[in-house]
Amino acid sequence: MSDAAKEAFDALTETVGRVTVDDPKMQAENVDVFYAEKQAIYDVTLDVAKNEVVAMIGPSGCGKSTFLRCLNRMNDTIPSCKVSGNITLEGESLYSSAMDPVMLRARVGMVFQKPNPFAKSIYDNVAYGPKIHGLANNRAELDDIVESSLHRAGLFDEVKDRLNAPGTSLSGGQQQRLCIARTIAVSPEVILMDEPCSALDPIATARIEELIDELRENYAIAIVTHSMQQAARVSQRTAYFHLGKLVEVGETKTIFTNPSHELTENYITGRFG
């Protein structure tokens, strides 16, 4: 980081751009995250709107994944991780005692960086979520959920003849779409995606990006990505993180064509990252 950029970062006390939206699905207010003594996220406020894709970009270690994982309390299992501030889903606080983390994760699904299908058949992979939550009353309903989820993930035609084949027998891109199908089978309200294409080739990536765009009709989506092109292609709003601070938020088009903050500009133009 140049001296000028460092100065600009130190001077940054408030996020540039409008962090709130008119019709929020999830709201994060003044979120700080600590891993033991080390602070990973400083005072981040950000909304996720309904039917929009919000992309989080930034250099490695900027806290974008950490922030994403706060949105469905996946950080709970890390004992040293402390989250403060307020995060709400439809106005309900995530970290209040009234919110059950199991319930929350059924409402806020997650797709991970590396495709991680269960060591089960394709069918069972998708059926697992509905089964544990008791979403299907009988086998026929379960079949319907599995089929429609695979359809929506754009995978059904490729696997309809081998639903009993192991999920891991699919290619990387197919596995990731299977993981997406598995997530939407639970009918969540929000889908979090943590660099969902970083382990995939360009063709599989394009497929997933199309899918994300289609999914926007029904879900609120927050996606963390390393690829600025991807952020530009799939998202409506973009948030730029830097060393744990949320530097700038704005319309994706604006961020990529006319960023307001110096750090954002440096990153977009490839001066660091």
Partner: peptide
């Protein structure tokens, strides 16, 4: 692999599940 645990937890499986 921890990814399996994360996947299950991410779907809303309880710790025992």
């Amino acid at each position: 692999p921890p990814s399996i645990r994360e996947a299950a937890r991410g779907l809303g499986a309880s710790p025992v599940q």
